[in-house]
């Protein structure tokens, strides 16, 4: 299953709840303002590090770069992807849920 999150974790609890309801083997894509949840040194780093134990986490690089961040700012283990990669992730997962 693929979970997509597009909200900053500082603004909404979408990322927290997405992690709460995701299970082993699921994928999580962070895009739009949710890329802030993928960054090192924020108070959500522990949450994401915990999520990385069971799930694959992806960050949409165009959204990351637009916001002045680069992959070097991202927590280790989070994978880079682009729009074509986003499409592939949704092909690979039978169920897709958007955490708006």
């Amino acid at each position: 299953m693929l979970h997509t999150v597009n909200k900053s974790p500082f603004d909404k609890n979408s990322l927290e709840n997405c992690v709460r309801f995701s299970r082993k083997g699921h994928s999580i894509l962070l895009f739009e303002d949710a890329i802030y949840g993928a960054l090192k040194g924020t108070r959500f780093e522990a949450l994401l590090t915990e999520a990385l134990k069971n799930t694959s986490v992806y960050v949409l690089v165009p959204d990351l770069e637009a916001r002045g961040m680069r992959m070097e700012n991202v927590i280790e283990g989070v994978k880079a992807t682009d729009y074509a990669g986003f499409v592939n992730l949704s092909v690979d997962n039978k169920t897709v849920q958007a955490w708006l």
């Binding site: 299953m1 309801f21 299970r23 039978k94 169920t95 897709v96 849920q97 958007a98 955490w99 708006l100």
Partner: peptide
């Protein structure tokens, strides 16, 4: 429940 779905419409 979520995992079993074909279509998830979020609002």
């Amino acid at each position: 429940l979520m995992e079993q779905q074909d279509v998830v419409l979020s609002f």
